[in-house]
């Protein structure tokens, strides 16, 4: 049970961390000054959440590693984030679609977690849910703006969709770890999460006048199992460079 829970906490924490890291890469390069603030706000929320999840995971694992160690010393094969969030930022259409698909999933997941049988999870999720409600509202509005904006923005969204969509299979396809945690009352109903995600995507895409693709099908990679795309290694190489170069250092 503890092993499952630790796995699941790493998934939540790693996804938030990697998504935030991608947002950091927009720093100073966002399409408007107002977006600089907004992207950094979302990133700040996510690093804060990652810290909460990883701290809990570290306590349960109790093997001498703390949250920083988990974030900055694990190899890519030990990272458990969704494939979706490790994908490169691309243009703003790709960035917004990644953010939106992640937010819609995150929102549904947290709605289950606020009713978790685990009080610690309940507490972290309650705070995170407020933040993610806002993230979803923002990214959903941007999907609408870009989908139903100019001809160019629409074409960019249509071009971005296939780059991102295939990775959404992980958002709606629960594995055995998650099934067991659901049965134990720790996390929400997985079918419900999938349905909520799908409904959110359909409603937003309709407003954005974008076509919803056929459900993505399973393929070889699985972020949750630590089998990532090639992008994660480079992302971690940058993020972890200082703690790796100076393993005994305090910062």
């Amino acid at each position: 049970m503890n092993a499952d829970l630790i796995q699941y906490l790493l998934r939540l924490g790693d996804s938030a961390m990697v998504q935030a890291q991608r947002l950091c890469q927009w720093c100073g390069r966002a399409p408007a000054l107002e977006e600089e603030l907004a992207l950094m706000n979302v990133g700040l929320d996510l690093v804060g959440q990652a810290r909460n999840w990883l701290e809990y995971a570290a306590e349960l694992a109790d093997d001498g590693r703390d949250a920083d160690h988990l974030a900055f010393r694990r190899d890519e094969r030990a990272y458990r984030n969704l494939l979706l969030v490790e994908q490169p930022n691309g243009d703003y259409a790709v960035t917004i679609l990644k953010q939106f698909f992640y937010d819609a999933w995150h929102f549904a997941v947290l709605q289950g977690l606020v009713r978790s049988s685990d009080a610690r999870i309940q507490g972290i999720a309650a705070k995170a849910l407020k933040e993610v409600t806002y993230h979803l509202r923002r990214s959903g509005e941007w999907v609408e703006r870009l989908g139903d904006g100019t001809e160019e923005s629409r074409q960019r969204m249509i071009a971005a969709l296939p780059l991102v969509w295939r990775y959404t299979v992980e958002l709606v396809d629960a594995d055995a770890v998650e099934q067991r945690l659901f049965q134990a009352g720790v996390i929400g109903n997985l079918q419900q999460i999938a349905l909520d995600w799908q409904a959110q995507v359909e409603a937003t895409f309709e407003r954005a006048t974008l076509p919803v693709p056929q459900a993505a099908s399973h393929f070889y990679l699985s972020g949750r199992q630590g089998v990532h795309s090639e992008h994660l290694g480079l992302l971690l190489a940058e993020m972890q460079s200082l703690p790796r170069a100076y393993p005994d250092a305090t910062w």
Binding site: G28, M40, G43, A50, M239
Partner: peptide, 30 residues
């Protein structure tokens, strides 16, 4: 002024330092 610090935001060496630096850069945009 966001740019020289932005050069390190993806490489901040701990969760705490990352949060602090992100908040600071965000203030500068503000």
């Amino acid at each position: 002024g966001m740019l020289p610090e932005g050069n390190w935001v993806a490489r901040a060496p701990s969760l705490k330092r990352k949060l602090q630096l992100m908040a600071k850069i965000q203030d500068e945009a503000g």
